[in-house]
Nucleic acid binder design. Structure first.
Lengths: 190, 190, 190, 190
DNA sequence: CATGAATGAGTGTTCATTCAT
DNA sequence: AATGAATGAACACTCATTCAT
């Protein structure tokens, strides 16, 4: 039941937004009553927090698996992380959108917890960029923090427009984005 | 007074979000009454629409001024548009954030109007990319629509993290982002 | 202007009801502002009272003209009064409907004034019925007060369903109603 | 509680009118809160509709019981219907008054539903008049539709003035009204 | 585990009225 | 004679939350 509530909530939060979705809406769709909801969650915010935690913990775990793989070059790791973040939108689209949009409705305390984990993801990318700069895979004059933001912008903003079942496939998008990031769009005349 | 209401609303919408900001909050801060608000705006949504229109119309106008300048190369135009979009966040930060976050609270009809203008901005970028590809400034094998999304991701997502008064100056950010987009981050070994 | 306000108000009060019609609605239709309204009327209720007074005073005056005519029999007078009340709906339909429906929105003091005049109309009918009973025109065993209510029911309720431009003409309605009142509907077997 | 709300609402709607009665007024009198009201009724209009439906359905049902009674002559049926309608005002006075006065505040859709049932009552009377004309109980030259309006005028308008605990008893009123309708008020000279 | 009745604070909105100009 | 800005009290309605059963 807890699982069912979470899933239906994600669906509704994505469609109508957190504030616009009432507990009543959620329990109506599940054909239970409000009492049931409050048996499993102590508040609407706690439900939102659960959704956020599940999303970010899973993502972080999978990212760190990539990061720890010593057989991969820095470039490969970056490419893998881009793939991870883009594919997440394909596979867990609604919860991703909820994650990016509704964090504001958490309490300050909970926002802190989530942001810490989000920062961890960012710092992991920054670190691999630094490594790549040091070992000659990447240009030596980059600002790793800004480059990290550039990568996260590409991936995170894609939830705003990327339709997983649309014309372009997520694998193709990953390839194009990686190509832009690594090679740029300008014609090289040498 | 209409101006004062709009400005205070943008400030509050940015801080607390559209739904979390009540008309009461707005008029309390201005030390007027709700009647005054409704003398100037027929509804809360109409106020939000006014904010959106003002933002997008100004942006579109300035973009088209760049696009029409025949002395500029495609690369220059792209660089100028990146600068335009990034600097907007510096100069009109709060309304930009409201613009990107609260569009959902407009009616479908109004969303349509805004999206049409937003699409125009996107299509203008796409067009200049195509021109650059045709005249040899840009690599010939690009997907202009996706590249456009990449550029918009960089600029639009920056409102999420870029602090205009922080360590990094907006001009510097523009330069780095343009460098990434044009040249990529990978070291060229030739 | 005062006349214009009154007329437009009657029109709107009939269409939407007194409470549902705002001062704003009235002045919008006349393309003036609320200030203008309050220059001519001190309150919304005073406007309603003016409408009521105009209606009832005119009606009462015309009824008393009928009553004082010594050449008319009682039966003729009753028939004339029925015609007067029915035709009023044809000629001054909207204000009649406002009169019958919106009196409740007057203050107690004003309701008293109107009801006094309305009672006068009723008592005038009652008196002519008594006269008719005394002089043998009408059956001697009637209750004049109840008969009066019967007559007023027929005429006053007609505003609820009678459409002046519909199939039946008001003259015909008067004739049928007078026939019912005077002769009844039962077949006489003698 | 639903019953209590309905009853108190009828009482208040009758005293002050639908528009002039706020939900707050209703719940204050019952010493509950607005939330309770909205737990039982989804809107103020829905409450009004419930009142209307209860009134008209009961009336229609009782009328049709009279109409189907084959032992009764047409004249008897008409007399019974007059008694039914008049007594309803005695027994369910307030809801009758609400019924006749506040229908306008229903939505068009709901007005349609109620009017259909109201028309059924009217058509049932019209039919029995036609039968009476055919079988010689009533004068053959009547207009059944207008006569029906006459009867309904007498009964329906009585809510405007008839006080069940006043001088005159409802049985007496029925008798007088039936006498007027059947025999008229004019002295027959034969 | 789950229900359903009830709460109470809050929301956007309306509107008759006032008043300086 | 008319305007337009402003008021403030009221209104229908919403909703997260509580709690006895």
């Amino acid at each position: 039941m807890k699982k069912k509530i979470t899933e239906k909530s994600i669906e509704l939060f994505e469609k109508k937004g957190f504030t616009q979705t009432s507990i009543q809406d959620i329990v109506d769709e599940l054909e239970v009553t409000k009492g049931t909801f409050y048996y499993y969650f102590s508040s609407k915010e706690q439900l939102l927090m659960a959704i956020h935690l599940e999303y970010i913990d899973d993502l972080l775990e999978r990212q760190e698996k990539i990061m720890k793989d010593e057989r991969k070059s820095s470039v490969e790791k970056i490419r893998n992380v881009i793939a991870l973040l883009i594919n997440d939108i394909k596979d867990k689209g609604p919860s991703g959108r909820v994650f990016f949009r509704e964090i504001r409705h958490l309490s300050n305390h909970n926002i802190g917890i989530i942001k810490k984990k989000r920062n961890q993801i960012r710092l992991n990318i920054e670190k691999v960029i630094r490594t790549g700069m040091d070992n000659g895979e990447l240009r030596p004059n980059l600002k790793p923090d800004i480059i990290t933001f550039a990568i996260l912008s590409l991936t995170n903003y894609s939830y705003q427009w990327f339709k997983p079942n649309g014309e372009i496939h997520s694998d193709e998008l990953v390839q194009i984005y990686a190509d832009v990031i690594f090679n740029g769009i300008m014609e090289k005349n040498d």
